[in-house]
């Protein structure tokens, strides 16, 4: 019988620790598939964050760094500058990238580092057990916003893609979602485009992936997908926010 579906070469055989229904597995797979399809797995170097995907260094089959919380873009900068021929990516969650690591992501982007950031936004801190994230929606209940995020007290969510897209060093920025098969395929195309942008040396690229966290949202995976569509999509509109690849064609 012919084999029609395999694990991509970009992933190791290690079983992941992610919760049932978590979308990290999908996003990991998309990154691995893209690296393989672009033929750059051999020169890819990943940088894992602190957060739920802290163990990503065990799952990606390329060389990987485990960075301190929020510092992945700085680590990736060091890697890329020292090894300019490599294909470097950071894989970060919303707490890592949009709270403690805001300075690093903004400056890596504005320097136009030839790296790619895969930014997983599930509007909550996952690993520490469901606290309010910089991306938590107004009114959303979390461990540390038990009465719902009050914007008078806790301020407003950050729209990372829109913010990064204002920087001249950012070459490709897109927000995607993995809530449906169609959107998963679109997400893959965006990630591929982002890596191509790096490989062609155009500049910094970021793909924000709207994701779910059934465990900490307290919903089933199916309900979580509905919640993402009903609540996250209106606040975080999908689409390409910046595309310098077209300008350079």
């Amino acid at each position: 019988m012919p084999i029609t579906f395999t694990k991509p070469r970009g992933l190791t055989d290690a079983p992941t620790h992610y919760c049932p229904g978590c979308t990290h597995g999908i996003v990991h797979r998309l990154v691995a598939e893209v690296l393989e399809e672009l033929g750059v797995l051999d020169k890819a170097i990943g940088v894992a964050p602190v957060g739920c995907s802290v163990l990503a260094f065990e799952y990606f089959a390329c060389d990987v760094f485990e960075a301190a919380h929020g510092r992945a873009p700085a680590v990736a900068t060091g890697v890329k500058r020292a090894k300019p021929d490599s294909v470097v990516f950071t894989y970060q969650g919303d707490g890592d990238l949009a709270a403690i690591g805001t300075a690093e992501i903004v400056h890596a982007a504005t320097r136009g580092e030839k790296i790619t950031t895969v930014f997983v936004n599930n509007a909550i801190y996952g690993m520490t057990g469901g606290q309010m994230a910089p991306t938590t929606l107004p009114g959303q209940v979390t461990e540390t916003s038990p009465y719902g995020r009050d914007t008078n007290i806790a301020g407003f969510p950050i729209r990372v893609s829109e913010m990064i897209s204002t920087l001249d060093g950012a070459a490709y920025v897109e927000r995607v979602s993995v809530d449906s098969v169609k959107n998963v395929l679109k997400a893959k195309m965006a990630i591929k485009r982002a890596f191509e942008c790096q490989i062609e040396g155009i500049g910094f690229s970021l793909v924000e992936v709207l994701s779910i966290c059934p465990t900490n949202w307290g919903l089933s995976p199916q309900e979580s997908m509905d919640w993402l569509r009903d609540h996250m999509l209106p606040y975080y509109p999908l689409g390409v926010k910046k595309d310098k690849t077209k300008e350079s064609e």
Binding site: F65, R71, V75, G78, K80, R81, A82
Partner: peptide, 9 residues
């Protein structure tokens, strides 16, 4: 952290 990245290569 840039040092961490570059030294790691």
């Amino acid at each position: 952290n840039m040092i961490y990245g570059a030294a790691g290569t």
